[in-house]
Every structure is written in structure tokens, then in C-alpha cells.
């Protein structure tokens, strides 16, 4: 085989550009020709050797985790020094309280089994924020109603929030739908909440990740752990989701799977 053609074939084989009969023929040649096989291995080895670690996405991900941990340690160190005395007093008080509680409630208190609803409440984080959901400031009638609806959500008046947000025609404002879904979830009207979150996931990609997150919590509160885990795993695999959301999903997964 002409040297230049051989190089070209090797390059194309390694980059996955050979297909069909050409690929079959080349593989057959590789099986028969040990020199060619060695040549291919050398090309591959060189290519791998030249791969800079900065260009490996997985390594960049690990670096981000390092960076996150470093920042966290830094913050803990700064705030830790100021709070150390106060923390000692609090720790002492907590220890006394723990001893007293143990005396009353026995050892079950040591390993409290959180119900799915409690776990969700502890991990769901903040309610949907209107400013984070909307990229534009409106100034129309919908914006006033939206704001009223989200204010009621904030106060925990879920029925009132639903009444306001339902005034906005469905399909015109995804954040209103998200608010309604959230309110239904908090009221325990899970089927309605699931239907709304699924609609958002289908029709409003800009807030899909938020809908995913609340949908996972709705399933968790319903006791449907498998459905919840499935959604959470999708969040951790979704490259368009923020790292903060991925970490929230990852931590919740760990708590569920404990």
C-alpha cells in the first residue's frame, strides 16, 4: 500500500470516518498484517499522548469540584474564625438539649427516619423566583398579576396564588404555570402539579430544569421514589443545568438512596 494512502486510512480509521466495505476491508487487513496493526497502535498512542488534560471535559469537571471545595473551605475558614466562640456556646447548648431529648425519647432519636415529605421539605430549597424565571421586565397586565401571584406564594397562601396565576391565560406565561404547579404541590394536589410540570417540561425549555426539580419533589412527596430518582438522575446528566442544581439533585439522590 502506498505510504501516504496508508496514513490517510489509519487517520480515518482512528477518527471513526471509515464505514461500510472500506471499514470491513481495513479491519480484515489489520487482522492479517501485524505491521499495520502496530502502526495503527502507534498512531493511536501518539494521539492519546498529545491529548492535553485541559481538553478533557471530565478533568475540567473534577477541577470545578476542586474549585467549589476550595471556595467552601475558604468561606468556612473566614466565617469560622469569627463564629468560633459563639459556636462553642451553641454546641454546648445543643449537646445539653440532645442529652435531654434522648432521655425523653430514647435511641430512635439518634437515627431519625425522615418521611419522603420531610426529606422533600428539607431539600427543596427556595420557591420559584419570578426574577430568575423571567428575563424581561414586562409592564403589562400579566406582570402585575404574576407579581401578585408570586407574592401570595411567598406568603404561603397557595390557594390565593393559584387564583391570581390562573387569571393569566395558559400558554402565554410559563412562569405563571410554574407558580401554579408549585402551589398545587405545596397543597398536596400532586396529580395536578405533575400534569402542570410535565406540560412545562414539554413546552417551555427555558424553565425545564426548574420544572424537573419540582416534579422530582412532587414524586418524592407522593412516595414514588423510582420516578423521583429517574428525574433526579436526568438532572445530574443534563449538561445545560447549572452546577448548583446538579449538586442539589445529586445530594437528594444520595439521601434517597441511603
Amino acid at each position: 500500500m502506498k505510504e501516504e494512502l496508508k496514513y490517510e486510512l489509519i487517520e480515518r480509521y482512528l477518527s471513526g470516518d471509515l464505514s461500510g466495505q472500506e471499514l470491513t476491508d481495513f479491519k480484515q487487513q489489520l487482522d492479517q498484517d501485524t505491521d499495520l496493526k502496530a502502526e495503527v497502535e502507534l498512531h493511536r498512542d501518539i494521539e492519546i499522548a498529545m491529548l492535553d488534560k485541559e481538553k478533557i471535559p471530565f478533568i475540567n469537571r473534577i477541577n470545578n469540584y476542586h474549585e467549589e471545595q476550595f471556595q467552601q473551605e475558604k468561606t468556612e475558614k473566614t466565617t469560622g474564625n469569627k463564629k468560633i466562640a459563639r459556636r462553642r456556646i451553641i454546641s454546648f447548648a445543643v449537646a445539653i438539649a440532645a442529652v435531654l431529648l434522648l432521655a425523653f425519647f430514647g435511641k430512635n432519636l439518634l437515627v431519625p427516619d425522615l418521611s419522603p415529605a420531610q426529606l422533600s421539605e428539607n431539600t427543596i430549597g427556595s420557591m420559584p423566583s419570578l426574577s430568575a424565571l423571567r428575563s424581561t421586565d414586562g409592564g403589562n397586565i400579566n406582570d402585575e398579576i404574576l407579581e401578585k401571584g408570586f407574592n401570595e406564594l411567598d406568603k404561603g397562601n397557595y390557594s390565593q396564588a393559584i387564583t391570581y396565576l390562573q387569571e393569566i391565560p395558559a400558554g402565554t406565561e410559563a412562569s405563571a404555570q410554574l407558580g401554579i404547579g408549585y402551589a398545587y404541590m405545596q397543597e398536596g394536589n400532586y396529580e395536578q402539579a405533575i400534569s402542570i410540570f410535565n406540560n412545562i417540561r414539554k413546552n417551555s425549555p427555558e424553565i425545564k430544569d426548574t420544572a424537573d426539580w419540582y416534579l422530582a419533589h412532587t414524586y418524592l412527596r407522593q412516595g414514588k421514589k423510582a420516578d423521583c430518582v429517574k428525574i433526579l438522575k436526568n438532572i445530574t446528566l443534563d449538561k445545560t443545568v447549572t452546577q448548583k442544581r446538579q449538586k442539589q439533585a445529586f445530594d437528594l439522590l444520595k439521601s434517597i438512596e441511603k
Binding site: F58, I62, Y65, K233, Q246, F250
Partner: peptide
């Protein structure tokens, strides 16, 4: 998971082994 740059696996490798 490493080859696919799977964030779930990435986090697990980091938390478990680092």
C-alpha cells in the same frame, strides 16, 4: 462515566475517592 463526562459519576468519583 469518565469517558462520557457523566456528572453523576464525576461527583461520585470525587466525593468517594478524593
Amino acid at each position: 462515566g469518565m469517558l462520557k463526562d457523566d456528572p453523576f459519576i464525576g461527583r461520585e468519583i470525587y466525593d468517594k475517592f478524593y
